[in-house]
Amino acid sequence: MDILNHVAQSVANGLLIGSVYALISVGLTLIFGVMNIVNFAHGEFLMVGMFGAYFASTAFGLDPLWIAPLIGIAGFLLGALVERTIIEPIIKAPQSAQIIATVGLGIILANGAAAIFGNNFLSVKTPYQGETFSLFGLHFAATFVYAAAYAVVMAVLLALFLNKTRFGKAMRATAQNRGAAQLLGIDPKRMYMVAFGLGVALVTLAGSVILPYTLVYPFIGQQYVLIMFTVVVLGGLGSIRGAIIAGLVVGVIQSLSTLLLPSELQNLPVFIVFFIALVLISGGVLSRVRNASVKLKRS
């Protein structure tokens, strides 16, 4: 019974953290889906969001959870600016150029933060940091619950945007077939700018949301890179629904692994999942599973 309780608690924690993983990764997969570019600076944009929230919190006493939407809007503008200046010229360049450019962007962001804030671990204080909720004999840290709630709200808003608005539909059309979308009068450049801005907005907002339970320092993006890539690859590059499910899966796996492994090693099983996902994709297993499920739906 005790073990069962441990496992249940661990799965619940994993779902909470996993929804945050989905939130930090969904922008990466959105950018890839629309623009066919892997943004290697995505972890650094998370860091920018965290520092933005840290600055707002220490300078103006604002709670990171309240300031998060503003951080997201600022992130959108930053992302749109970056897209116009750096990404737009290389959108048709070879993949290697895109990798190098976004890696270079990440270096600039991380070291820019290091030059301004120094190479220190920083954190914010919020009144709810010690609070926990209890439900069915399980306990949840308030900071994680609020972050997960944000993730759910953002997922719903993103789904509404992509499925119900004209602009969102145009963006999906661009993702599916750039040429056909252009023939129908959709300006792909505008879609790229908005998609990149939206991707950055989501991850900077996420940075603000996770700040109450974690530390921030200029090179923290590196720590999240593995998780982001695992989520995006496992969910299928470019699939938003896939990324959300994969985020939850990765969170649960990581959380369950702490029952067996020291918590410092919790990224090791994540990497193993990542590697297995790669092997499965290269063997065509995942696409076969997907095709099979499509057939099931039809019948």
Binding site: A101, G104, G106, A114, P218
Partner: peptide
């Protein structure tokens, strides 16, 4: 030295982007 040490690295990032954009 100090915080400025990061500026050297930052220059690397700028150099990478400039190379990709103008002299691949």
């Amino acid at each position: 030295t100090g915080n400025l040490a990061a500026l050297g690295q930052l220059a690397y990032g700028v150099l990478l982007i400039l190379l990709v954009l103008f002299q691949p």
